[in-house]
């Protein structure tokens, strides 16, 4: 019954490994995204105040403040002198992503990821395969632009349009005209270009990608000798270029690019279990290019 709904890139894996193992990381990610958002929504919508605030800055059970380093950095460019809680909160989040992989934010936290994944899935199902090729470095240009704009205007510039903030604020605090921006992102990903927003344009992802360049937790193509060249991992991956050096190269089997979201899509899609979650262990000097 759900057969026609399953994405093409999971089919090989589904046939060999069953539904659960071909959707394991996807399920975990959706669980993580929905749980985190749900925790923030519990307060305003149900009066259960475990966490307060939103993804920009939050107060976790009155114990610790967390904050989005990208917004804080824009504020600093805008000339803000922040109070201590938001600075320490941004530092904690930065450290966490240095361990978990910067773009784990994109795959495991950001609610827009659900929107764009849905657009990608629909694109696949409707055969909208032609593509306006965007340069994936556009996001770095946009990131630089937002910092420049912040410096020029003295305000947190990207927050005036940021769909990531708009969506989570819409869900946590209420609904407004901001939905049109989310719709715009969805239509962009569906009609204009494959994975346009998250993998090419979003400066939030670009920022976390920079943090994630040295991240400890990494996907590894450990059993790359078993690869059958079926292409499933490339099809499912939001950032296919990150796989090439690990899978086809002679060096480390770890996916080292900061662009990798640690989403585990390749692990789900691979019919022969090439990939697994692993860690970079600089102190053991393993995985270095030989």
């Amino acid at each position: 019954m759900i057969g026609p709904l399953i994405s093409e890139s999971r089919r090989l894996s589904l046939g060999k490994r069953g539904w659960l193992r071909s959707h394991k990381w996807w399920l975990l990610r959706r669980f993580s995204q929905i749980t985190l958002l749900g925790l923030f929504m519990l307060g305003p919508w149900a009066g259960i105040w475990i966490v307060r605030g939103n993804f920009a800055a939050s107060d976790i059970a009155g114990l610790v403040v967390l904050a989005d380093p990208y917004i804080v950095v824009q504020g600093i460019f805008g000339g803000a002198i922040h109070a201590w809680p938001v600075l320490s909160g941004a530092a904690v989040i930065t450290l966490a992503y240095l361990v978990l992989g910067g773009r784990a934010y994109c795959g495991w936290v950001c609610p827009v990821n659900i929107v764009t994944d849905t657009a990608f899935w629909l694109r696949e199902k409707t055969g909208l395969t032609r593509d306006r090729k965007l340069d994936r470095r556009s996001r770095l240009v946009i990131l630089a632009g937002t910092l420049f704009a912040s410096a020029l205007t003295g305000a947190v510039a990207w927050e005036f349009v940021n769909p990531v903030s708009l969506l989570q604020r819409a869900l946590i605090s209420g609904i407004g005209f901001g939905w049109s921006i989310i719709l715009a992102v969805f239509l962009l990903d569906l009609f204009v270009s494959r994975r346009a927003w998250c993998s090419h344009l979003c400066p939030v992802g670009a920022f976390y990608g920079l943090i994630g360049r040295g991240a400890l937790v990494r996907v590894s193509a450990t059993r790359r000798s078993a690869c059958t060249d079926c292409g499933a991992c490339f099809n499912i991956c939001p950032e296919p270029h990150v796989i090439v050096p690990a899978l086809k190269g002679r060096g480390s089997p770890l996916i080292l690019s900061g662009d990798c979201q640690n989403c585990g899509g390749c692990i789900d899609a691979c019919p022969v279990d090439v990939f697994q979650i692993s860690t970079r262990r600089p102190w053991l000097q393993t995985g270095a290019a030989e």
Binding site: G43, G53, A56, A67, G75, V86, S150, V156, S165, I172
Partner: peptide, 12 residues
Amino acid sequence: LAACVRCGLCVQ
């Protein structure tokens, strides 16, 4: 406008 991160903690 530079310092506020739009977190809504004051609102809540």
